[in-house]
Design a protein around this nucleic acid. Structure first.
Length: 153
DNA sequence: GCCAACGTTGGC
DNA sequence: GCCAACGTTGGC
């Protein structure tokens, strides 16, 4: 099982600084509506797993910090809320469709930009860098983790 | 704003 | 089960 991850967030929605200001520096990772990403959270993530916090769809996309999984996956509350943009009419309390973990900020890092990641040796196979990749949660290998963590320091 | 790439939907 | 159409993601 992977123990390292990369999780994308649009800073307009939730930035690394927003997380730093959040109570207990913790947030539910709600709003994931892709089955593969959901499965990673629901089936594979364990408390203590580490993840890079990635800013996407913004002027400077890149890795902005490190978070850890602080709570196992549980049903995403927004799927039941008709007022939420993430409402899912087909989801029920008895048969929830979407799940989220909680993540807690470990530390902010300097911004490791997308061009830097692309240029780095050893990251050629990183899922986030693959052509056409859109997955919001992706596994990171131990080797990739080491390289990027060093770049972020 | 553009557009490539991808996931989902729904008709058949 | 196939696949065209559609919607979304996300870098540029």
């Amino acid at each position: 099982m992977p123990r390292h991850w990369l999780m994308k967030s649009e800073p307009d929605e939730l930035s690394i600084d927003d997380l730093a200001r959040a109570p207990k520096r913790t947030t539910p990772w709600f709003g994931v509506r892709n089955y593969q990403a959901r499965n990673f959270m629901r089936d594979d993530m364990r408390v203590g797993d580490l993840a890079f916090f990635y800013h996407s769809s913004c002027p400077e996309p890149g890795i902005a910090g490190i978070v850890e999984v602080s709570r196992l996956a549980y049903p995403d509350a927004t799927q039941f809320d008709p007022k939420s943009a993430y409402f899912d009419a087909k989801a029920t309390r008895n048969a929830p469709r979407w799940f989220n973990v909680d993540v807690k900020l470990v530390r902010k890092t300097r911004l490791v930009t997308l061009p830097e990641l692309r240029a780095a040796r050893g990251l050629e196979e990183m899922v986030i860098l693959r052509r056409g990749n859109r997955l919001s949660i992706t596994p990171v290998t131990a080797a990739e983790w080491k390289i990027v963590e060093k770049m972020a320091t």
